[in-house]
Write a protein that binds this DNA or RNA. Structure first.
Lengths: 251, 251
DNA sequence: CGAATAGTGTCTCTCAGACAATATTGC
DNA sequence: GCAATATTGTCTGAGAGACACTATTCG
């Protein structure tokens, strides 16, 4: 808004004038959620099948209208809880950006504020009262041309942001549970980046970064196929990784 | 948007129903510009004085309504050109994020999509037909509590993003002209970060990063207070700095 | 020549990447 | 013991930060 004089000097009469595009054109505002997790070693996104026009039968990111009295983050948190049952403080939620091409929704002018969520592996998506969830789909298996609206663009932005964030933040820990092993964390990196990492160098790096991991006094969990039990950690308080954990170079 | 069935299954009748908040609440959508440059060694932002209610007389980021037929980037580009006369391809323009607290504008429900612009030093802001521009203000001199709306929050986000982007992208070059010296570029980093950098290490770093700088065959420009003339460069094609140019650690 | 700025070389320390070696479990 | 995984240690090369030194201009 704002900073503009000729267009916005109408005061309260504005609501009544809102059908005149010369004064202030009305938009619908929605949130779309790029909900990411690592499931069975696959970096995955939550998609829903649309059961109404437009794009009926196509897959879409879960989303919905922002209510008149809630802020954008609030709408995202409400959606997150409704779609997955995850409380917002159990996951990492951040705004991804706004998408608002004039033709992105054939029915009306919509600006969608996309949110990016990193969640630990979840039992199963809630069959929402209103959305027919198809659940988690591996990011590499998503057929972008089959997504509704501009959700292919939104998803691509979210996936790239997630991959970048693992490099310079400790947010990989948002994909695992409260307590986890170094191997759990490494599997997150490997799944998200699609690259194997050296377990030994990885171990040295993450345990040597102050504030990334906090050892849990508790002894060791069991190994699935044998092997020495691993130590348990929980998330530390660091918000940035200095120096960064760089992705293996392409090629 | 979308992914929502019960709320959005209205089809074309929706426009006519838009006054009923239970179906889809209408929002005003605006763009706000965080226009940054380096002027006389000071990292500066373009601010305008508001001459209408609300926040009359307070400073604000330049901005305005998004038109019904333009996309968000288009609105930002239009604003940029109108406020500064800068053509969008002469500057770096990226979306910063959406801000939409219910009470951010007392007149109506507004979602603002903020844009971040890095521009070379400009002669002077255009005295816009509609905005009373006060022009460039050093970021360190901005009194955040005197900004209109939530623009203190928006500005802080833009400044921090700019500081971070200098680390891992070659975008510092967006703050200088087509041709520039290594010292010009160093002054950008020093002004934005507020830290002196070692000229010798800086030179080695930027000239050694492939794709950052392209030497211009042209000889050397003159020196203002003597000294050996510097070589001229133009921007290269790199989009990321690997490894990053890290900010000096705090402390 | 002296002042000022541009640019190169050198040294040290940190850290990433490769990979050997050791530790601890289940079978 | 053997297989499997966890964890530590060692070596090497890239690169950052500190800073001496050379190069080129103006006055």
């Amino acid at each position: 808004m704002n900073g503009c004089s000729a267009e916005d000097s109408h005061g309260e009469a504005m609501w009544l004038a809102s059908y005149d595009p010369a004064t202030f054109p009305p938009f619908a505002v929605t949130v779309d959620m790029v909900l990411l997790t690592v499931r069975d070693g696959a970096f995955s996104v939550l998609l829903a099948e649309r059961d109404t026009h437009p794009y009926r039968g196509r897959l879409s990111l879960p989303g919905g209208f922002v209510r008149p009295d809630e802020n954008l983050d609030g709408a995202a948190h409400r959606r997150l809880e409704r779609e997955t049952g995850v409380h917002p403080h159990e996951a990492h939620v951040e705004q991804l950006g706004a998408f608002g091409a004039p033709d992105r929704d054939p029915r009306m002018r919509v600006v969608s504020v996309a949110y990016l969520v990193f969640a630990p592996d979840l039992p199963a998506p809630l069959p929402g009262a209103r959305t027919r969830s198809v659940g988690w789909v591996a990011v590499d298996d998503v057929r972008h041309e089959e997504l509704a609206f501009d959700h292919a663009t939104v998803l691509a932005a979210g996936v790239e942001r997630a991959r970048a964030k693992l490099e310079y933040t400790p947010l990989a820990a948002a994909f695992v549970g409260q307590q986890f092993t170094v191997a759990d964390l490494r599997h997150v990196y490997e799944s998200v980046w699609g690259h194997p990492l050296d377990p030994r160098n990885f171990h040295r790096k993450v345990t040597g970064t102050p504030g990334f991991l906090v050892p849990v006094g508790r002894p060791a969990p069991v190994g699935p196929e044998g092997g020495r039990p691993a130590a348990l950690f929980r998330r530390g308080t660091a918000v940035a990784l200095r120096p960064a954990m760089l992705r293996p170079r392409r090629g």
